[in-house]
């Protein structure tokens, strides 16, 4: 299962990861090897097998609609590097 560097670019874009040329090549190679190894999964018959999304079957518990105190604003903003007017600041979105 070969993952080309171009495919790596596409995945990196979807995941918002900057990769340098060396990484592109390395990951292309490593991901290909890994996915090759995973091809064996295709041999398993799973026609009528349901997927396991919850390993311990249970139902979604519902929370009573009550308001609890939010984080004091200093605690919310305290870990951020760029705060202006009590909001998180980011550079403009340029296309």
């Amino acid at each position: 299962m070969s993952i080309t560097p171009q495919q790596v670019d596409h995945i990196a874009r979807l995941a918002r990861l900057d990769l340098n040329e060396e990484e592109r090549q390395l990951y292309s190679q490593q991901l290909s090897a890994i996915l090759d190894h995973f091809q064996q999964l295709q041999e398993v018959v799973t026609e009528d097998i349901p997927p396991t999304f919850q390993v311990i079957p249970s139902q979604c518990p519902l929370r009573v609609d009550e308001v609890r105190p939010s984080l004091p604003r200093e605690h919310l903003l305290g870990n951020a590097v760029d705060v202006v007017d009590n909001q998180f600041r980011v550079p403009p979105i340029l296309e």
């Binding site: 993952i3 495919q7 790596v8 995945i11 990196a12 979807l14 995941a15 918002r16 990861l17 900057d18 990769l19 990484e23 990951y27 490593q30 991901l31 890994i34 996915l35 980011v90 550079p91 403009p92 979105i93 340029l94």
Partner: peptide, 28 residues
Amino acid sequence: EAMWDIYYHTRGEKFGAEVKRRIMLGTY
């Protein structure tokens, strides 16, 4: 300078190789 670059650069530089590898594997 541009917003998207914050994502690309921060994540690209501050995640280690194994983490990036698994993120890409999972995204794929």
